[in-house]
Design a binder for these strands. Structure first.
Lengths: 173, 173
DNA sequence: ACGGCCATGTCCGAAAACCGCGAGACAGGC
DNA sequence: GCCTGTCTCGCGGTTTTCGGACATGGCCGT
């Protein structure tokens, strides 16, 4: 009696300088999840929350997505800006993630700045929390948010990768 | 960014031998809620849970619904069997409510029999709970479930109405 | 018969825990 | 003094846990 429109998502694996990544796309070409292969359980957990009941089948991501990611890692760090993503978090999370995509490659923001940008200057830790539960890494650039004193503080894919991504973007502007 | 497709539901009021009733239907003719007018707050609460964010406007229910209800109260106690209902409870509740509709008019079941019918013989009290949170009274005949010893035990619309409905159905087969 | 007792499964609301922070206080080292 | 590192605590949204509540039905005494 429940609406059982089981959505079918494709799971692709691509090689990058920072290790193999998992890309989940839907039938409309939107990216639903993107994470590093060694954090697969985490991605599956997030995906289960954001796309309940969807089935996952191995398959190639749309060419536009593959090419954009390749271009990004090759040095065209703005290549991801046109990609469409689709997530289903709370209203607060949606605001945070939208604010993330507004940070240009090569720049960084502090958690406090991001909190102020969405009109809740004191919701600093909550921003960190929403940041950490972002299902679409790299494209939604949660790695561009650092501590107010310049320290990297944390990253779901490991601080080493956060450092690499920031250096990559800083060197390619 | 959340899906803000505000659904519009119609709220009708009809007279019956057991008092005025509230009928909520959707754009597809399915009954979403049905309760007695003097329990309006309860119905609103259930509706808020089963159709979050929907707006309610006064208006007439589809003719098929009105006629079926009139026929039922006039003596054609099987007139409600063809009506479509739509609810959004948990899986357990859905099973219980489906099992309810399988009880023919004029018959009754005990809570234990109903629990056994859905394959959870010991979930007796849970059946009672699910029964009580049924948003679509009368059409989903929760009044046909009574205690194992024949007592009526309880009814959201008042025991007096439960007694009346059962007598009405028993006398009209 | 009748009245108490208790095991039972599910759901809901409240409360607490959890954090990818940041500001302020404080202690040392120069 | 000044700079830096460590500590403490308040912050806010989300998730998890927990404690009742309940439209029962046996069982066991009287």
């Amino acid at each position: 009696m429940t609406d059982a429109r089981r959505e079918v998502l494709r799971l692709d694996r691509i090689e990058t300088p920072v290790g193999e990544m998992l890309v989940v796309t839907d039938g409309e070409g939107a990216v639903r999840a993107l994470d590093f292969a060694d954090y697969e359980p985490r991605m599956m957990r997030l995906l289960a929350r954001h796309a309940p009941g969807a089935t996952l089948t191995p398959g190639q991501a749309p060419e536009a997505v593959r090419q954009a990611l390749a271009a990004y890692f090759a040095g065209d760090v703005r290549a991801l800006e046109g990609l469409r993503v689709k997530t289903a978090g709370t209203a607060f999370q949606a605001e945070v993630w939208a604010a993330l995509r507004a940070i240009p490659a090569g720049e960084t923001r502090s958690y406090g700045q991001l909190a102020a940008a969405i009109g809740r200057p004191s919701a600093v830790r909550a921003v960190g929390l929403a940041n950490g539960s972002n299902p679409v890494g790299v494209i939604v650039p949660c790695h561009r948010v650092i501590g107010a004193n310049g320290t990297l503080t944390g990253y779901a894919g490991g601080l080493e990768r956060k450092r690499w991504l920031l250096a990559h973007e800083a060197g390619a502007v």
